Computed example of a mutant assay.
Amino acid sequence: MNYIASIGSYAIMVKEVFKKPTKWGIMKSLILKEIDELIYGSLGILIFISFFIGGVVAIQTALNITSEIIPKYLVGFATRQSIILEFAPTFCSIIMAGKVGSYITSSIGTMRVTEQIDALEVMGVNALNYLVFPKIIAMLFYPFIIAIAMYVGILGGWVAGVFGGFSTSADFVEGLQLDFNTFHVTYSFIKTLVFAFILATIPSFHGFYMKGGALEVGKAATTSFVWTSVVIIILNYILTQLLLG
């Protein structure tokens, strides 16, 4: 019953976010601040992880090709499919649940503890719109850094494969071009947009409705990371079944 109540509270929160909007002059600066914190601030860690994960995928694929019958371009093919279909949209989103989600929950939770949210409501400001709406808009730019993660991941696979002696550049590029389906990229971006909404709203929910003091802020951040990750994994399964099944 607690789960059902939480889902109901979450739906009500999302509905309230879009009511009684804050003045555009104020909202614009809030959105730009969130883009800097949530998107630009996450670019470095995603590039770093994507590059090395792409390299690991290429190396593991090459090491498992033990038969002369299996073509060498399979390294590039497997790297492309793994990065575009699953790693970039899903694995990166789980990483973001830890980085961005914890930041959102702790920042809003701290405002709740220090009664800043109460002050906003006393002044007649829709606190949910003021705090959560800029994060939702900022996360609409999330597909851009996922596109960069795709490129860097494939680049990492190429570097590891070619300079590690596991594949030639020509074979790797041939694998990248083999049976390329543009809908796979579309599918990844659809998932990314759904995950972006989850990354902005579930951590906000846990931060906004938390109770207690400073200790509970940390607990709320941990809980939001767990539930954000669980929802992303479940939605990943559902969207894959709907779009590719």
Rank of each mutant, 00 (worst) to 15 (best):
M27L: 15
N236L: 03
K99W: 08
F183L: 10
Y187A: 04
A11Y: 08
S9F: 09
K19R: 14
G212Q: 04
S204G: 08
H206I: 01
G164Q: 05
T228H: 06
F133W: 10
F91W: 09
L128T: 04
L74I: 15
T222Y: 08
P134V: 00
V173P: 07
I146N: 00
F52W: 11
L46G: 01
T223P: 05
Y187T: 04
I94F: 08
I4A: 14
D36M: 11
G165E: 06
G41V: 01
L193K: 00
F163Y: 15
D171E: 15
G245N: 12
G161R: 06
N126K: 04
F208N: 03
G245Y: 11
T240N: 07
K72Q: 14
G55V: 06
K23T: 05
Y142T: 02
V231D: 14
Q177A: 11
P143F: 02
I104K: 08
I7G: 09
I95E: 05
M139S: 00
W24I: 14
I232R: 00
F48A: 15
L215F: 08
T223I: 15
Q81T: 11
K23L: 14
L193P: 00
E216H: 10
V173E: 13
L85S: 13
G207M: 00
M27I: 06
V75W: 04
L74Q: 14
Y237R: 11
F48K: 10
V231H: 08
D36K: 15
S102R: 04
I202D: 03
I12C: 08
G124N: 11
T66K: 14
I26G: 03
E174Y: 13
N126L: 10
G164T: 13
K15Y: 15
E174K: 15
L74W: 10
Y3E: 14
F189L: 03
V159M: 12
M27H: 15
T79E: 03
G109A: 15
V113F: 09
V173Y: 10
